[in-house]
Nucleic acid binder design. Structure first.
Length: 1042
RNA sequence: GGGCCUAUAGCUCAGCUCGGUUAGAGCGCUUCCCUGAUAAGGAAGAGGUCGAUGGUUCAAGUCCAUCUAGGCCCA
């Protein structure tokens, strides 16, 4: 027997019970173990940074990471799922710095690197707890006990091993380049980190006069100045040169008594309405080696301050003359090197001007702008100053504006494998597909070398040792280090400062080699997880070979330049093959107003309270099925509660209904239930639909399309509840085994299809309906297999017939509403006109009659004088007649509809005369034929289908109507007086109304049957009976029968 | 400046792959109906220049081009 399923449900409460059951019975482990000998379907978990608290976007990604492995498991695959935690990196360091009240690297050094890193490790352990709780609460099944931690010694050594492979290929190199640099964190950043941190800021954009001191122009136009534009006034201190485009045209402009050099194309923009006159034009090339007076004379920059040529200079913006400061611009550095100009850097590693610099010594670089601009103004060098709004890169973690800063760094030469990366990308399936050659492909095409090193503390140490003669040795493990150093260091923590203390004689020259000071980008750590999570190659070599590459990974779109890239790049660098085949790339989650969620705005959704308010299933269903996962979506309390009402509660109530009546009639599924073929048509319709559902959802999930799958499921649940159950209610009251078996089977299918989406509620239903009635049922819905298809039960004809039935019912209801006669009042007959009506089985016709409360349904043409109208069916005509379609359509509209239809119905074709074409044969499919009765009917028509109601009343109909009215009043009375649905009652009535009395007597048996009355007495009610309120002229009362 | 995404009812979104002549759903609003599973369901009404322009076509929300606005990412 089924378990009792209450109509009311507390979803979050249910989920906590299920969570406990899963824990107690170790269902997740069992679901993986049960498929151990089945084909592998591999999934890689992208490790969240164990820092800060989880947000709604983590829930989103984790829902998708959960649904496909669950689905594949049901389909018979072995899907191990290893959790992972990203432990290293700036985010963790910054959090610890904040806790300790540090302001920079000096504080860390003073505190001690060992102690600092210990705090970092402790911080990671603390934050992982929050992620674990959220993960468990939402029902994301992933093995957290066996999680990989990027800070584990084994993991670090795997990363070392991979770096050594790359080093050996000559692709890990040190170089001196201008790179984005965070002065607060004191380290360079990679391009994909840069991508995380653009912020819109307003900087001063200044036009500065650089008076010419030598060269051709100085002689021709004494007092002339170069007009130079920059948005970073602080770099003017180290001005070294001015670059112009050799192929652009420049001119000398006289305005307001001064002479300035500007690119010709920009003259109008620079001078605007100010009166100005062009004195001469000159090519950029001819400006080369012009000398000028630099704007600030604060630091020593020998042999500089000339005009140089550079192709990258454009005349789109500014003045076409670009100030050069080679320490702070990648392009500047390249251009100035070509002229052997010095690279002078007056800014220290913490972003402040050196104390010895006059005017701005000790000032933070960005803060110097104001002082410097004031000085320019005072000395008459400032031509113009505008606020300039633009996106400027900031540190993605501490929000300090970045400097482009010349510094030595370690790079992975990814540009050398760019073609291979493009090749690997071509073999990857992206969902949605636009990412592949759009956002991601674009990124690959513009690939730059990976700036790998960080001048920090808490990270995987770069495993390169260097001797005084600059010989480099890459190390792959502590074992190798032990061998070289002659000491057993295999138990040493492979982090700073401990590895820094290990040294060994250089294998090439025997001088003592020490480790270089840098640690690596933590994105390299996470990108190494396919092998490092297994400790490969030191351990698990076999498992790795089986599990590489992954069948499936999934993250949000911000990972295109993050994890999606580092995974592919490292895979290609080390194994010459990308590490994933299918990648699902999600849009972001926004708040209800469409804004990004951020702590700053205070609109962050706390996942656990959110799930405890609505239920994790509701949140999951929303993420998977509501709107497009590829797009940014708004989420909030309203959108989630709609999901609950529309889908989850409808499903639950259908289950509760089934349980109620099955238990009432002591029904359990058994072999004595009628076979599907022997059940009524409506049952076969449901089974056709449920089997189709299993097939279509399977296809959709195979294509990673949860939105489509969700729509299919929601539609089916709606059909089941609001058509099948609604239409079959009486059979359930009667305990009809065919109906009960049908609903049982349909619910089983939909429960299985839904299990990956909403694992909690489906588990509850599985336990209450299926495990309780089938000794062979698996102990959990998540140990069950995908529903077995019975293709032979899928009946296209039946489904299209039922669709017609439902359309006709819809028309009938419209006509009913129009007529003003309430549905409880039966009508004698309705006339139907629709193609397909004649072929409709009597079972299906009965569905229409019952739903509309009409005693007889008849074909329209046989019973009334009919008005015919015809319209052109353009879809059909267009294919045949193309550009002549409109003339044909006009002719059809003007034709004698009655004669045309009569001819088509008799012979299959009809003829119309079209001016310029003569007679044309048309068939029924070329037309939309609408039949309506000529008079005296209430009609509703749509798309060639009509339902007409006969409103004529007679005593019999009125009597039946009164009886229905009484039944409804009595049922309402039963309900409000709190009777159980199985309670029997006695009915007492008295009435002075003749018609009503007659109706009661005529329909007594039927009334008694419907309201479970053991007796219907025409007598005054005893005092203990409950009086039923009704607007009919009758005194009515009921009493619970003993 | 480049890449990608988005624009359909007051709000949230389908429909666009594969063009068919009255553009759909849900929420909200008005009126009515049905109801012994339902926190539901149904009918009617109000509410749309399907972002704009141009093109292709017999026919464009749907295909093409350009533009506008917003978003994300990059320069």
């Amino acid at each position: 027997m089924y378990k009792a399923v209450p109509a009311q449900i507390d979803l979050p409460g249910l989920e906590h019970e299920i969570l406990q059951m899963w824990d107690e019975e170790a269902v997740f482990a069992a679901s993986v173990a049960a498929r151990a000998d089945k084909p592998l379907w591999t999934f890689y978990e992208g490790p969240p940074t164990a820092n800060g608290t989880p947000g709604a976007h983590h829930v989103e990604a984790r829902v998708f990471k959960d649904v496909f492995p669950r689905y594949r498991t049901m389909k018979g695959y072995h899907v191990p799922r290893q959790a992972g935690w990203d432990c290293h990196g700036l985010p963790v360091e910054l959090a610890v710095e904040k806790e300790l009240g540090f302001t920079g690297k000096g504080d860390i050094e003073a505190y001690g690197v060992a102690e600092f890193n210990a705090r970092c490790r402790e911080s990671v352990l603390r934050h992982v707890g929050e992620f674990s709780d959220m993960t468990r609460r939402m029902g994301y099944w992933v093995d957290m006990d066996g999680a990989y931690w990027t800070m584990d010694a084994q993991y670090v050594q795997s990363v070392w091993w991979s770096l050594k492979q790359i080093f050996n290929k000559g692709l890990l190199v040190q170089d001196h380049r201008v790179a984005p640099y965070c002065p607060r964190c004191g380290t360079g950043l990679s391009d994909h980190e840069l991508a995380q941190g653009y912020e819109t800021v307003v900087d001063p954009s200044v036009y500065v006069r650089f008076p010419i001191t030598g060269g051709g122009l100085a002689e021709r136009f004494p007092g002339c100045a170069l007009l130079v534009w920059t948005t970073t006034p602080w770099t003017l201190v180290s001005n070294t040169a001015v670059a112009v485009n050799p192929n652009a045209e420049y001119c000398v402009v006289e305005s307001d008594g001064e002479k300035l050099v500007v690119a010709s194309e920009l003259v109008a923009q620079v001078f605007g309405d100010t009166e100005h006159k062009v004195l001469a034009t000159i090519s950029g090339r001819d400006l080369e080696y012009t000398t000028y007076q630099r704007p600030f004379d604060l630091i020593d920059i020998p042999d500089a301050h000339i005009v140089i040529l550079a192709d990258y200079v454009t005349t789109d913006d500014g003045t076409g003359l670009v100030h050069q400061s080679p320490a702070f611009g990648a392009d500047d550095l390249i251009s100035c090197r070509a002229y052997n100009l010095p690279v002078v850097n007056p800014i220290t590693a913490d972003g402040h001007f050196e104390p010895s610099v006059p005017m701005v010594g000790g000032v933070f670089f960005k803060k110097a702008d104001e002082t410097l601009v004031a000085s320019l103004l005072e000395r008459g060098l400032l031509f113009r100053k505008d606020p300039y709004e633009h996106a400027y890169p900031h540190c993605w973690r501490c929000h300090t504006p970045l400097m482009y800063y010349a510094q030595p760094s370690w790079y992975i030469r990814t540009t050398a494998i760019k073609d291979q990366l493009l090749e690997q990308n071509a073999k990857t399936n992206w969902f949605p597909p636009t990412i592949q050659w759009g956002r991601y492909g674009d990124w690959l095409t513009n690939n730059v070398d990976w700036a790998l090193s960080r001048n920090r503390y808490w990270g995987t140490p770069l495993p390169i040792w260097r001797c005084p003669d600059d010989h480099l040795t890459a190390i792959e493990s502590l074992a190798e280090l032990s061998q070289l150093s002659g000491k057993d260091v295999t138990e040493t923590d492979p982090h700073r400062p401990f590895v820094d203390d290990i040294s060994f004689p250089c294998p090439q020259c025997s001088l003592i080699a020490h480790r270089v000071p840098e640690v690596i980008d933590c994105w390299y750590d996470s990108g190494s997880m396919p092998f490092a999570a297994l400790g490969y190659p030191q351990t698990n070599a076999e498992a790795f070979a089986e599990q590489y590459p992954a069948d499936f990974i999934c993250e949000a779109i911000d990972q295109t330049r993050g994890w999606f890239y580092t995974l592919m790049a490292i895979g290609t660098l080390v194994f010459e093959e990308s590490s994933y085949k299918n990648v699902v790339c999600l849009g972001h989650i926004l708040d209800e107003e469409g804004r990004k969620m951020s702590k700053h705005l205070g609109n962050v959704l706390e996942p656990i309270p959110f799930m405890d308010a609505h239920g994790a299933d509701a949140v999951r269903w929303f993420m998977l099925a509501s709107g497009s996962p590829w797009q940014a979506r708004r989420v909030g309390h309203n959108s989630i509660s709609e999901v609950v009402r529309k889908t989850l509660l409808t499903y639950w109530n259908t289950v509760s209904f089934q349980s109620l009546y099955a238990r009432t009639s002591q029904w359990s599924p058994s072999s004595s239930d009628p076979a599907p073929a022997d059940r009524p048509l409506i049952d076969r319709w449901v089974l056709s639909g449920s089997n189709r559902l299993a097939r279509e959802v399977d296809i959709a999930l195979d294509q990673f399309d949860t939105q489509r799958a969700g729509r299919l499921i929601a539609t089916f649940i709606d059909d089941l509840s609001n058509w099948y159950v609604r239409r079959s209610r009486r059979r359930f009251w009667d305990g009809d085994p065919a109906a009960l078996a049908t609903l049982h089977e349909a619910l089983q299918t939909v429960t299985l299809c839904m299990a990956p989406f909403t694992p909690f509620i489906t588990e509850r239903v599985w336990q209450d309906l299926f495990r309780s009635t089938d000794p062979d049922a698996s102990g959990s819905v998540h140990l069950a297999s995908w529903p077995k298809l019975s293709e032979d039960l899928i009946d296209d004809r039946l489904e299209s017939d039922m669709a017609l039935v439902r359309r006709l019912v819809e028309l009938g209801r419209a006509a009913r509403a129009d007529s003003g006669v309430r549905t409880r009042q039966p009508l004698g007959r309705a006339l139907i006109s629709a193609s397909g009506w004649n072929e409709l089985s009597s079972d299906l016709r009965d569905q229409i009659a019952e739903e509309l409360n009409v005693w007889n349904l008849e074909g329209l043409g046989d019973n009334a004088l009919v008005n015919l109208s015809v319209k052109a069916n353009f879809r059909s005509l267009g294919q045949r007649f193309a550009k002549d379609t409109p003339s044909i359509a006009t002719a059809i509209a003007g034709a004698d509809a009655a004669a045309l239809v009569a001819s088509i119905r008799a012979t299959g074709t009809g003829q119309i005369t079209v001016t310029g074409f003569g007679d044309i044969d048309i068939s029924e499919e070329d037309l939309v034929i609408t039949e309506t009765p000529q008079e005296g009917w209430t009609v509703a028509s749509d798309a060639g289908e009509s339902v007409a109601l006969d409103l004529a009343m007679n005593d019999e109909l009125i009597s039946a109507g009164l009886s229905r009215e009484l039944i409804r009043a009595l049922q309402e009375g039963r309900k409000t007086s709190g009777l159980d649905i199985t309670d029997r009652i006695q009915v007492f009535w008295t009435s002075s109304d003749e018609k009503l009395s007659a109706a009661l007597l005529t329909h007594e048996a039927e009334i008694a049957d419907d309201v479970l009355a053991v007796q219907v007495q025409n007598a005054a009610a005893p005092s203990e009976a409950t009086v039923i309120k009704t607007e009919l002229p009758v005194e009515l009362a009921i009493l619970r029968a003993v």
